[in-house]
Nucleic acid binder design. Structure first.
Length: 804
RNA sequence: GCCGGCAUGUCGGAAUUGGCAGACGAGACGGACUCAAAAUCCGUUGCUCGCAAGGGCGUGUGGGUUCAAGUCCCACUGCCGGCACCA
């Protein structure tokens, strides 16, 4: 009788063993495979079973690649700057550097419970001066290339976090971090010109093996549109207003024009009669928050008293101001075609502006229009020389026609805005810029980096729009690196995304003091082959990282221009009823107790068994018993078979090859939950077979052990040793299947009448159609009572007799 | 409002991409072992009619294509996610 499975003893033993003899060895000959996790920020709450899932997925994948002969680059680090870490420190009344270090220690202990093959020699921490030296270096390079610039304008401001935010950090008008309603605040900001990369960020999506969903979110976020800028002369003045439109085909239907209240000409368009109302409207608009401004409220507006001339037909179109037009998109001014745009229709109806239909719907003009006809499908009407054309064709051709006539030009626009890059907070990388009264903005010389974050007592946000750093005179006051005159340091810090935009490059050369990453190591180990993490960063971290990588490519730091070749988004683990795990909800499941009671191997497998890895899953503790029972049964089967030492039979060999084929295929398609159910199913078959034979043969059990190793590394190492191996199971090779060996002599085939199964017949694989049908009919002879119309035989699949 | 995704037993989910729906697991029920319980092992478990043999129904709803539909097409309903006055 074999010894029962003792997870505690086995896991302790192998943990020690691996520490002494690492299994992932870089011998310089093996090809590399870079499998990366999105690094965590060291939260005070530690890890819950949801975090585990992502790390288990990446570790299983890494170990699978290892067994396929790769050296795995599989690092881990800490995204420790930024709001979450700082807010936690404020709450706990500690200094962020202290609480961050404590949290890292705790999470590192928890991560080690996963028994992943992380290479801790590669560890990075974004708050380490040796790391953020390079975060600052990248900023200086961007500044020198004209991609980092200063600008004062009304930015998104979170009153609770007391800092400015990037567009990407505003979700439904609320702060991505704390959910507070975002307001506008006029602030001097550092900006990164991500828009300069808009086209490449859009086009290169094609190169990526990423989930379609994420690619689509990025392409929607970049929001490229094609259209034309058209110039409308202002009546009675020597001025023109340029509008942007994607529907130049509807130009004859433009019955009014609207400018954003922030438009440069807004005030000057007012006449003596309208001046008061116009100025009041502009003032009111500046006071309204984002949320107010969009939340589906009724449109407001004011007539300036001035008219523009439609350049095509000379029609007088009244110029209005309204806050439904955005100042920072296109030209901040639009031509309005109420017949063919919902918003313009609503506005025109409210203010009694004429509506002219220029595209026929179903071949005719609509009587009593109640809503806009927004399709670009139909024949042009009321459109002068364009009458009779198809609107879909005209839509494409109009920009060039307008350009030829000198009325404007063809152009494209993007929804993507430049990245608001400064934060009025303490816990971030200081922006390495010195403001000199004579030389302007001067970057800190590269050899003086890192510019260290000063250690201070009081680091709480001021809320005034000034960073807490501004209060430290001895830090702020410095001299200009160029002219030596007294100068002041920039006091804003970088956003939390700064370090995470490039950290994956640093792991492979984390101790290099001379370069961000050496050319040699970058060529050898980068880019990332597989990136695993949640979908919540689709337009944040993942877009920023692509931008950074393209920039670093352009200045010659790396040769590739996309950081992550393949991306996998794991689903979230939630509590009961799909409620997100959180301390306040009290539904957080900690992995610590489960590891103690069931072992690491069981929890690893259960994390995958809960459901398809890409979907969210509700956690249910009870289910872990299932995988625990499986491991016990597997242990017993393997240990008993080891003792029994029986010779292989044809059935065993067949089962072995089928198993290799099945498991490998499911792994390759990332169907990790069905890999686990496959293990269970094959284990049941092994146990049934062993009942008759006294055990399974050595090679077949060993094959099972290797297949299971990436999932349950401890138990498989122990059994591998039990089977007499002196080296790690991870030095084994991933088994291959033999097509011939797994073929069945006979296949069970369903016999149907009119698509309904009436019997099952065992047929040899190479039987002829006639014989197959004849045999099938024998089985169901008593039911063949009508006229046979058709007989269908799909080899290996089905026999269907069609009867009348 | 627009754009995606999903819908299968009591529950989590599977289905070789058009070929025996419900694998695997959880739960439940019955049995063996035990003084007893736990653990373990064996069995049953979509609904329904039937004593049984056997039959009917069944993948959100309604229609269609096909010898054959969870899978493809059309319409609809519900849930989830993204974007949200981007002209």
């Amino acid at each position: 009788m074999s010894v029962p499975y003792n997870h505690k003893a086995i896991e302790q033993k192998w943990r020690k063993n691996w520490e002494a003899n690492p299994v992932n060895v870089n011998d310089g000959k093996k090809p590399k495979y870079y499998c990366l996790d999105m690094f965590p920020y060291p939260s005070g709450n530690g890890l819950h079973v949801g975090h585990w899932r992502g790390y288990v997925i990446s570790d299983v994948w890494s170990r699978y690649k290892m067994l396929n002969g790769y050296y795995i680059v599989h690092p881990m680090g800490w995204d420790a700057f930024g709001l979450p870490a700082e807010n936690y420190a404020i709450k706990m009344g500690t200094h962020p550097s202290k609480s961050t270090a404590d949290n890292i220690a705790n999470i590192k202990r928890q991560i080690n419970d996963i028994a992943a093959v992380y290479d801790w020699d590669m560890e990075v921490n974004t708050t380490d001066p040796d790391f953020y030296k390079w975060t600052q270096w990248i900023f200086v390079k961007m500044f020198k290339e004209g991609l980092a610039y200063e600008k004062e304008f009304p930015i998104n401001w979170c009153p609770s976090c007391k800092t400015g935010l990037a567009n990407e950090e505003v979700v439904n008008g609320k702060c991505e971090r704390c959910g507070t309603e975002v307001t506008k605040k006029n602030l001097r900001q550092w900006m990164l010109k991500i828009t300069a990369y808009a086209d490449r960020l859009l086009e290169d999506l094609d190169k990526l093996d990423w989930p379609d969903k994420v690619k689509k979110m990025q392409s929607d976020w970049i929001g490229k549109s094609h259209g034309a800028e058209v110039e409308f002369p202002v009546e009675g003045r020597d001025e023109k207003i340029t509008v942007y439109t994607t529907r130049p085909d509807t130009l004859y239907g433009a019955t009014f024009m609207v400018l954003a209240p922030e438009h440069a000409m807004a005030k000057s368009l007012a006449t003596d009669e309208t001046r008061e109302a116009v100025e009041q409207y502009i003032l009111d608009a500046s006071m309204r928050s984002n949320v107010d401004r969009l939340q589906g409220k009724e449109k407001t507006g004011v007539f300036t008293g001035t008219y523009a001339i439609n350049p095509l037909n000379g029609a007088k179109t009244p110029i209005w101001l309204s806050d439904y037009v955005l100042a920072d998109y296109g030209t901040g001014a639009i031509m309005c075609v109420p017949a063919h745009d919902d918003r313009d229709f609503e506005f025109a109806t409210k203010f009694n502006i004429p509506i002219i239909q220029v595209i026929a719907k179903d071949g005719k003009e609509i009587e009593n229009m109640t809503e806009a006809y927004t399709e670009a499908a139909g024949t042009m009407i009321n459109s002068g020389e364009w009458n009779g054309m198809e609107s879909a064709v005209l839509k494409k051709e109009a920009p060039e026609m307008i350009e030829k006539r000198g009325l404007g030009h063809k152009t494209t626009n993007y929804k993507l805005r430049d990245w608001v890059f400064s934060r009025q907070r303490y816990w971030g990388e200081p922006i390495p810029i010195i403001h000199c009264p004579h030389c302007g903005n001067v970057p800190v010389p590269e050899e003086q980096l890192p510019l260290r974050l000063p250690d201070v007592e009081s680091y709480e946000p001021t809320g005034t729009g000034e960073s807490p750093l501004a209060g430290i005179d001895e830090w702020v006051n410095t001299t200009c690196p160029i002219c030596g005159a007294p100068a002041k340091r920039e006091t804003n810090t970088m956003p939390q995304w700064a370090g995470s935009s490039w950290y994956f490059l640093r792991y492979v050369d984390n101790k290099n003091n001379e370069e961000l990453v050496s050319k040699e190591k970058a060529d050898k180990y980068l880019p990332v082959d597989m990136y695993i993490g949640g979908v919540e960063h689709a337009v944040l971290h993942l877009l920023y990282s692509r931008f950074y990588t393209k920039f670093l490519h352009d200045i010659g730091v790396v040769d590739f221009d996309e950081p992550f070749t393949k991306l996998f988004n794991q689903g979230m683990i939630t509590g009961k009823n799909g409620i997100k795990m959180s301390k306040s909800k009290g539904n957080v499941v900690s992995p610590d107790d489960l590891v103690r009671d069931y072992g690491c191997d069981s929890l690893r497998m259960y994390e995958l068994f809960v459901g398809p890895p890409e979907l969210d899953a509700e956690w249910d503790d009870r289910g872990i018993d299932g995988v625990y029972r499986f491991l016990n049964r597997f242990w017993k089967m393997a240990a008993d078979s080891c003792e029994a030492n029986v010779a292989e039979t044809k059935d065993m060999v067949k089962l072995r090859h089928k198993m290799v084929y099945d498991i490998t295929q499911r792994l390759e398609t990332f169907s990790l939950n069905t890999v686990i159910s496959g293990f269970m199913e094959y284990n049941n078959k092994f146990i049934d077979m062993a009942k008759k034979t006294g055990g399974m043969d050595k090679e077949t059990v060993e094959t099972f052990i290797v297949l299971l190793a990436p999932f349950a590394p401890h138990i498989t190492e122990e059994l591998w040793a039990m089977y007499g191996h002196e080296t790690s199971v991870f030095e084994a090779k991933w088994p291959e299947h033999d097509e011939e060996a797994m073929k069945d002599d006979e296949v069970e085939i369903a016999v149907q009448i009119n698509g309904k199964t009436r019997g099952v017949v065992a047929l040899s694989a190479d039987i002829s159609k006639e014989d197959a049908i004849a045999k099938g009919k024998e089985i169901i002879a008593d039911k063949l009572t009508g006229n046979i119309v058709k007989e269908i035989y799909v080899p290996g699949r089905i026999i269907n007799i069609v009867m009348k």
